[in-house]
Amino acid sequence: MEATLASIWLITIFFKIAFYFYVTVLGLSLLFKFQNYRPLIFPLGLNVLVLTLFISPNITYYNNMLSKTWWLVDFTFGLFLPFLLLVVGKYRVKKMF
């Protein structure tokens, strides 16, 4: 039972990372007006690989950093940005009518 759940968990993590990577490459290619997104795959993948080693060298460092900075990330993406989107949405609806 545990092995099945662990394998399902790893498969979902793989697809989630692959999807985010694809969206990032596609978004950058649209931002810089490239004809094809494929030339960005290798450089961006190499950057992701190198940056993961520098950002989080081990699990202890990662947990320590997370305990100090998670409240700021949680506040920004969980409260501030949704509130900003709500205000902008209300403003745009009033402006349209």
Rank of each mutant, 00 (worst) to 15 (best):
Met1Gly: 08
Ala3Lys: 05
Ala3Glu: 14
Trp9Ser: 02
Trp9Phe: 15
Leu10Ile: 03
Leu10Gly: 00
Ile11Ser: 09
Thr12Arg: 01
Thr12Gln: 12
Phe14Gln: 07
Phe14Asp: 00
Phe15Asn: 04
Ile17Lys: 05
Ile17Val: 05
Ala18Asn: 00
Phe19Ile: 04
Tyr20Asp: 11
Phe21His: 00
Tyr22His: 04
Val23Tyr: 14
Thr24Met: 13
Val25Cys: 05
Leu26Ala: 14
Gly27Lys: 01
Gly27Gln: 00
Leu28Pro: 09
Leu31Asn: 08
Phe32Asn: 02
Lys33Ile: 03
Gln35Gly: 12
Tyr37Thr: 12
Tyr37Met: 12
Tyr37Ile: 09
Arg38Met: 04
Arg38Glu: 07
Ile41His: 08
Phe42Cys: 14
Phe42Ala: 14
Asn47Pro: 02
Val50Gln: 09
Val50Trp: 10
Thr52Pro: 10
Leu53Ala: 14
Ile55Thr: 03
Ser56Ala: 11
Pro57Met: 07
Pro57His: 12
Tyr61Gln: 12
Asn63Arg: 03
Met65Tyr: 00
Ser67Asn: 10
Ser67Ile: 10
Trp71Tyr: 06
Val73Leu: 11
Phe75Tyr: 14
Phe75Trp: 13
Thr76Phe: 04
Gly78Lys: 00
Gly78Met: 07
Leu79Val: 13
Leu79Asn: 02
Phe80Cys: 00
Leu81Cys: 01
Pro82Cys: 01
Leu84Val: 13
Leu86Val: 02
Leu86Pro: 01
Val87Phe: 05
Gly89Phe: 15
Gly89Trp: 14
Lys94His: 04
Met96Pro: 06
Met96Thr: 14
